[in-house]
Design a protein around this nucleic acid. Sequence first.
DNA 1: TAGGCGTGGGT
DNA 2: TACCCAAGCCT
Length: 306
Amino acid sequence: MTAIPADSAPSASRPNGTALHSPVIDWFDAHARDLPWRRPEAGPWGVMVSEFMLQQTPVNRVLPVYEQWLARWPSPAHLAAEPPGEAVRAWGRLGYPRRALRLHGAAVAIRERHGGQVPTEHAELLALPGVGEYTAAAVASFAYGQRHAVMDTNVRRVFARAVGGREFPPDATTAAERKLARALLPDDDPTAARWAAATMELGALVCTARTPDCVRCPITAQCAWRAAGSPAHDGPPRRGQTYAGTDRQVRGKLLAVLREAVTPVPQAALDKVWDEPVQRARALDGLIADGLVEPLDGGLYRLPLT
DNA sequence: TAGGCGTGGGT
DNA sequence: TACCCAAGCCT
């Protein structure tokens, strides 16, 4: 008869969570990708830059832009010293270019309010532009080794399956999900940080949305979804994103012209990217309102200098 | 709070 | 070919 450690007993506050820690963290130790922002030399700024770029954008597309970005702007002060338009240009085709503007704004705020150092406190991080609940927790955890429930789409899916017995989590993060994530968090800081990275990696590499690779999953034996026979998602289909013909597409085309231009661009050059004039004007106005484009006298446009 | 906000690779 | 979806944030 083997002795059972007291802390492995299931409880209401921690639904058998500790039983997941070791297999998931051990799997991570063996299979984690060697990503540049995970290396010690990345530092808090490298972690923060990667988190901005990885918001809704796959790792493979982020890698080259991340390297160029850190080489050019190795600290928040370096980025803050340049016009926001340079950040938008360097963002390239990562998508959602408002993130570039917000990252620049975060760098300025870090210079002004934090002496040029990426803040260590969750609340301070959360106050930076472009930093929400997830990114604040991620930076505090990955850069500073703190204990936070880091909940991204990967973690939510892993928990929905392993613990909830469902194929997918709800559209919007629920209080129950937050409570579960907190309950599953290991007690000490370094293990909690490891757990956060490990659960994310498991969702990204094994417990994927489309075709989960349960054969390679370290917790397949404990997975509630598996135990239930891997039932398909029930309820209304998840909200899809349309793109063709939307303002987003027009904005993308307009901004692509401005990113490539070295000098201010005349209206006529922008008019070529989209035939329908009303939508084209609306998209351009939106970009200006967002601060992504700066209108000049004489019908010229450029990426923002201020 | 639901919807707007880019882009491109995988299936 | 279409559609899905990818380390979210903001209003």
